[in-house]
Each structure stands twice: as structure tokens, then as C-alpha cells.
């Protein structure tokens, strides 16, 4: 299964791109929380951030949300507008 990932702010600097197709094995990754763990394994610098959230299809997502194919998933590092 794959989702479309978007990266912003420092997450974009860490990953090196602003968007990518991200594929994973459904046995390891089903929920938002699983994907966070997977991302932190792949990009350890993400775990050094104050926090980061995932947004699914433009809404903040809880860890137990189950991902669907072709979801748009954005990595939201600590926001700092204003």
C-alpha cells in the first residue's frame, strides 16, 4: 500500500524532498501511529524534534486512525506561524 507524503518546514530539510510516494507493508504499518514509528526509524532526526504530527487528507490525525491507499499524509513539525 502507498500514500502520498508531504513534508514541510524542518521535516522537508530532514527528508530532503517536499513530497514522495511512500510505500509500506500492511503487516507493519496500518495506522498513523505505525507510520510515525516507521518514519522515525527511516529518518532518526524526526525524533529529535519537539514534536511532530501527521495530517491525513488535510486534517490532524490521531495515532489510531487507519490509513487508506492514496491518502495524502503530511508531516507537520511544530508550527510557528504568526
Amino acid at each position: 500500500m502507498g500514500v502520498e507524503m508531504l513534508f514541510f518546514g524542518i521535516a522537508k530539510d530532514i527528508v530532503g524532498v517536499s513530497q514522495m510516494e511512500f510505500s509500506f507493508n500492511m503487516e507493519n504499518v496500518g495506522s498513523v501511529g505505525d507510520l510515525k514509528v516507521q518514519l522515525m526509524e527511516q529518518y532518526p532526526a524526526l525524533s529529535k524534534l519537539s514534536s511532530f504530527a501527521l495530517a491525513v487528507n488535510g486534517e490532524y490525525a490521531q495515532d489510531d486512525l487507519i490509513l487508506k491507499s492514496n491518502d495524502e499524509v503530511a508531516v507537520i513539525p511544530p508550527v510557528s506561524g504568526g
Binding site: F8, G9, I10, A55, Y60, A74, I76, P77, V79, S80, G81, G82
Partner: peptide
Amino acid sequence: TLKETVPIWKK
């Protein structure tokens, strides 16, 4: 609230 929740980043 904007500063807490809106996905905007400042460098």
C-alpha cells in the same frame, strides 16, 4: 490559536 494549530512555519 493560529500560532498553536495552523500549519505555517517560520524560518
